[in-house]
Structures are given as structure tokens and as C-alpha cells.
Design a protein around this nucleic acid. Sequence first.
DNA 1: GCTAGGCAGGAACCCCTCCTCCCCT
Length: 189
Amino acid sequence: MHLVIFDLETTGFSPRLHEIIQIAAVRLRHGAVLPAERFATFVRPQSAVPAHITEITGISNRDVRLAPEPASCLAAFSRFVGDATLVAHNGRRFDIPFLRESSNRHGLRLREVSFFDSMELSRRLWAREPSHSLDAVTDRLGLSTENLRRHDARGDVQLLASAVVSMWQRLGAAPDLCPVPLEVGHLPA
DNA sequence: GCTAGGCAGGAACCCCTCCTCCCCT
């Protein structure tokens, strides 16, 4: 199966009120990360990056000041995705609505793309565990976060890719058979 | 340690609405 694992950093939680400031993604084919197939860009927001977001993500106004505009970043990301299935952690509630809202706001025509939420893999594996956050998942899998910048999309997406590969294997699913139902999201056409 | 928005899922109830929790930055 052809997957694109992605992560967004934004200026807040609301797709209507806040903006994307970073997109990162890695490609997986047949259950393995393709090291040469990575996507990462800062995105120039219309408003300033709030101080508390810089504190969390390490992303400052200096990082995004000269970055490409949202419309071209979203279009480039969509080209990178191609016909792959998207994967994001809590993507159903956060990343996927953010992509749709941001594309709409910038007047981009949309196309449908399949996705699944990696939290569903965790729920399948550890139904009784109270937390399925990325931190909880990586702890349970014993994944190292050394040399990774957490809350930078490039670091988070690398961690999430390892987590997805590991959870997929633990579920005993064949590399080309998704163990959770696919859903529909939107990207620029 | 609080805040921000929206969702899913449950409670209470029979079809909606309301509530609370989780998770993302």
C-alpha cells in the first residue's frame, strides 16, 4: 500500500481561525519508509506566529517570513501525495479539516483523497488504554525520540512513520491491506 | 496551569440535544 504520513504545525487549534505554518511528510510503500521521499516546507501565514506557538514548536516568524504562500505549499503537497493514502495522528479531527479549510480559504479547487487516522491503529491495538496520544503510543512502542525535534513537523512525522510501521506489524496486517477503514479527505486538485 | 475549536461518543431518550472527553498546535 502506498501511504503518505504527514503532520502540520499551525498557529492554533481551529482550522477556521488559525493557519498552517509547516507541512512535513514521508512516503511509505509496502510497509517501509522511503528515505529519499520526503516533503517539508514552512508556510507563510498572513498573521504573525503567536509566541506560545513558537514556544511549543520552535517555529518563529523568522522561519516563515520568506516561506512560500499557503496556496503553493498546499498544491506542492498535493502533488507529492499523488494517489497515496494520507495518514496523520488525530488527522480526522485536526490535520484533514485543516487541509480542507486552508485550501478553501485560498480558493483552491479540491479533490478527494483517502486517509486514515493513525489513532485508530492504537485503539485497535490497545483498546483499554486511556490515552492514544502520539506520546502515549511512542512510549508503548518503546520508540526513541532522541535526535528528533518533537513538535517540529519533520521530527513528528518521522516518529509517526515509525509508529505506524510498528503498529501495522503488531496488528498482523499484510503490508498491502489497511487494518482500519479508510475515510475521505480533501487536497487541492 | 489556564486558554483557544471541533469532533466523537455517551447519556438520556425515541430523536434530538446536551455534555464531556480526547487530541491536535
